[in-house]
């Protein structure tokens, strides 16, 4: 087991190394940060001085060598605009992204698991068909459109919520509703299919003939065995939520990593762009590894070697 985790971590280093190179090269093409930082009437000499000070006049390979050496010491560079270590800035924005992600996931599971189970219990019934069509519609709706429609109706017309902002639960409701439609749509489908697979299994017949309560059978035997495929999709959802809610964060003025990255791109704040992409990639690696470990813990037949 320990060897498996070690091998996975080594493999992850390749991912991070590849990503660092790609992001480094791409961010250098974004634009001339020295030009952007100076007033329009700056002289050519001031411009050259600025470039030398920022270290952007060296060849790309030299710049990358310097950056990689810093990275190995855990130094992700300074934000060019805020004179704060870039990684500190990213980490300070992580709670907002994480709150949004886990509130969405919690709400989606809360809705999708009962609906999926009920649909699987009576396949082909009216409830099943309605649930299927609504879930497919849910995963087809663009989240940012849903966000705008929710703002339009619930905030602007009915005045129930503020249109945007960050703070208490009242700010969380609209973004969570907007993102969870897709999440719920996918989860309902997976819960339904994996429950359907499990419900015809022999051990349920055994459980019934032992005289167990239907509830015990459903939760203790069926749902437990249906958890594995559900877990896979939950992992995918977490990863999607950690790096995919950029547009929602912009619409609701949510101070998460997505908004930070967009702002950094607009200011050519290289260090912050790189730090946030690498940070998200590390999160993705951690979540993937955790899911695999939970897998092995849930199903003793799975042994990694």
């Amino acid at each position: 087991m320990a060897r498996y985790v070690l091998r996975r971590l080594v493999q992850s280093l390749f991912v991070l190394a590849g990503l660092t190179i790609v992001v480094f090269i791409v961010t250098r093409q974004i634009g001339d940060v020295a030009r952007l930082m100076l007033p329009i009437d700056a002289t050519e000499q001031q411009y050259l001085q600025m470039r030398a000070m920022l270290g952007v006049d060296d060849p790309l390979i030299v710049q990358f060598g310097r950056y990689a050496a810093d990275l190995l010491r855990g130094d992700f560079g300074m934000s060019l605009w805020q004179s704060v270590p870039a990684m500190d800035l990213v980490i300070s924005r992580f709670p907002a992204t994480a709150i949004l992600a886990f509130a969405t996931l919690g709400f989606s599971l809360f809705v999708a698991i009962p609906v999926g189970i009920l649909a699987a219990l009576r396949p082909g019934s009216l409830f099943d068909r309605v649930a299927t069509v609504i879930s497919i519609f849910g995963l087809s709706v663009p989240p940012f459109w849903l966000a705008l429609m929710l703002i339009s109706v619930l905030s602007l017309q009915l005045g129930w919520f503020r249109t945007s902002g960050y703070g208490g639960v009242e700010f969380l409701i609209l973004p969570v509703l907007a993102i969870s439609a897709q999440c719920i749509g996918r989860l309902v489908q997976v819960v339904r299919t994996s429950m359907l697979d499990v419900l015809t299994a022999q051990y349920l017949v055994t459980a019934r003939s032992k005289g167990l309560f239907e509830w015990t059978i459903l939760v203790g035997h069926a749902l437990r065995n249906a958890m594995l495929p559900i877990l896979t999709i939950v992992g995918d959802e977490i990863i999607g939520l950690l790096n995919g809610s950029v547009v929602i964060e912009i619409i609701f003025g949510w101070p998460g990593i997505g908004k930070l990255t967009i702002d950094a791109i607009e200011r050519r704040d290289f260090a912050v762009i790189q730090a946030s992409v690498i940070f998200v990639a590390i999160m993705v690696i951690v979540v993937n590894l955790l899911i695999d470990l939970i897998y092995a813990w849930l199903d003793p037949r799975i042994r990694y070697s």
Binding site: V22, N243, V246, V277, V280, I285
Partner: peptide
């Protein structure tokens, strides 16, 4: 393993 949306944006 890449964060697709952020990378696409950049």
């Amino acid at each position: 393993g890449f964060p697709q949306m952020l990378l696409a944006l950049i």
